[in-house]
Design a protein around this nucleic acid. Structure first.
Lengths: 142, 142
DNA sequence: CCTTTATTATTAGACATCTAACTATATGGC
DNA sequence: GCCATATAGTTAGATGTCTAATAATAAAGG
């Protein structure tokens, strides 16, 4: 019990993973996209449409943040906003054709990431570490 | 090998830990300080003085970022900047008395954080998870 | 020496993110 | 039916962070 640096490691891993994702996206010709945009797009890749609020919850960001993120994705032509008919406060977000076209790249990047992260980890180790991280994650929900 | 979400967990853990740190700092009456400021201060708590560049490396941030962070810490009166005599390009940063006074709070917060993160983890589990996270962290240094 | 190259730090500009405040709409109680 | 309250989304303002460019100084090579 001498080290006590799970948080520092988690932080460094998160940042390196984010940089890797951005680098890979650029390598696939996808520019100006940060991981949060990616998270949104991944959620939309099943073809469903979601409200701004739904997306905010899914990617663990606030609504104002999602407004900005989505506006950028609209500018890039990856998604469209659709006003709800039933409740005019609500805005749905849906992938465009161009957005749907990102799927192969996203799957490749995801596989590449997993190959790096889980390199030389046995299935047992992978399972164990996810279980423990899950526990720590819950512990932090004060 | 079904989950594959170490990165997502690391990301959530990092963010929750950061929020917890900020909340605890405020509870100790330390306001306007984010984890990066904390990282800098923790590094200075041994009484040594470090250059801007040193600090940037220690906290894994760029030099422009550290310039901004330090300027804020100077405004708050926690640190002072001292021009080097030997090399006039170099600026040293050192804790003030007020900065030194943060030590007890920082230690308390660190202990509280460890208590939460390592709650119901055996020593063996803690050791193992840090070893595996260390491995993943290195794997990401492409 | 003097010029080129390297190094330290800052400034400028961009962006994701947050909280707080605001708008607009819906819902629920009386 | 109206008014209070809740909910969805945006806008405004602040801040940490980055990259690129700049300034100032040091070191190195001819």
């Amino acid at each position: 019990m001498k080290h006590k640096n799970v948080i520092a490691l988690a932080s460094r891993i998160t940042e390196k993973a984010h940089r890797l994702i951005i680098r890979e996206l650029e390598a696939h010709g996808i520019d100006g996209i940060v991981p949060s945009h990616g998270d949104i797009l991944v959620n939309l890749l099943n073809g469903e449409k979601y409200t701004m609020k739904d997306l905010a919850e899914k990617i663990h960001r606030t609504k104002p943040t999602v407004t900005v993120l989505i506006d950028k994705l609209v500018d890039f032509g990856y998604v469209t906003k659709i006003k709800s008919n039933e409740d005019s406060r609500v805005t749905f977000v849906e992938l465009t054709e161009k957005g749907l076209g990102l799927k192969p790249s996203f799957m490749e990047i995801s596989e590449k990431m997993n190959a790096i992260v889980y390199k030389d980890l046995s299935d047992k180790e992978a399972e164990f570490i996810e279980a423990v991280l899950g526990k720590i994650n819950r512990n932090l929900d004060e």
